[in-house]
Computed example of a mutant assay.
Amino acid sequence: MNTDAVTQSQFVSLNGSAQPVLSRLSYLGGEPFAVNIAFRTDRGRWVEWTFSRDLLVTGLSEPAGIGDVRVRPDLAADESILILEIESPDGYALVEIEREDVERFVAATSEVVPFGAESDSFDIDAFIAEITSV
């Protein structure tokens, strides 16, 4: 792959709504430990969450996450669905995503930065400079 980014858009079910919501999974090689998921609001704005790529990978096969973001397969109802739960002081959302779409996205991220090679792609000095210049 000749890019350092992966983006995949899809429609998802949000909180069991019959009306699908446009979502966007994204990954940047310069931030190799994280993935982003964004949801388009009815006003055309995007609401974005960032969490661990490893959490997404683990959630494909078993429940993962103990914080604001949790991922798990929906083995009770439909094995083709992945459940993403997002919680904040402002609310809670349950997102149903096609498992195959997430598997394809994860595979594409590993072409950008192979699993286990994240540290090689992460500029720790730039990160420290960024957080200490606040």
Rank of each mutant, 00 (worst) to 15 (best):
A77I: 14
R70Y: 01
E96F: 12
D90Q: 11
L56W: 09
R40A: 12
Y27I: 00
L84D: 01
R72E: 14
E103A: 05
G59I: 02
S121F: 15
E111V: 06
L84I: 14
F39Q: 04
V69K: 05
E100I: 06
P63M: 01
D101Y: 13
V71S: 06
R104S: 11
P20T: 02
W49C: 06
S121L: 03
E48S: 15
E87V: 10
Q8A: 13
N2F: 10
A38K: 07
T41S: 08
S9Y: 13
W46L: 07
F39Y: 11
S13P: 01
V21D: 05
A77N: 15
D78Q: 13
V21Y: 07
N2K: 12
E111T: 06
A18F: 11
V71Y: 07
D78T: 07
S121G: 01
T109M: 09
A38F: 09
V6E: 09
T132D: 13
D68E: 15
E130Y: 13
T132E: 14
R45C: 03
R53Q: 11
D4Y: 09
F105R: 06
F105N: 05
E87M: 10
V113I: 04
P20H: 09
F105L: 07
T50C: 12
D74N: 14
A107Y: 09
R70K: 07
Y27K: 00
E85I: 00
L94W: 06
V102A: 10
F11S: 00
W46A: 01
V95S: 05
G116K: 03
S88F: 05
L25H: 11
A108Q: 14
I81C: 04
T58G: 01
I97P: 03
V21F: 09
E79M: 11
V6L: 11
F33N: 01
V112F: 07
T7A: 15
L22C: 05
E96R: 15
Y27T: 00
E96M: 10
A126K: 08
M1N: 00
A38R: 05
L28K: 08
R40M: 15
A107Q: 11
L94K: 12
I86N: 02
A76K: 13
A34P: 04
M1K: 01
S121N: 10
V106W: 08
F33E: 01
V95P: 03
D4N: 10
S119T: 03
G59E: 06
S121C: 09
P73H: 10
T58I: 12
N36T: 01
A126I: 00
F115T: 06
S9P: 04
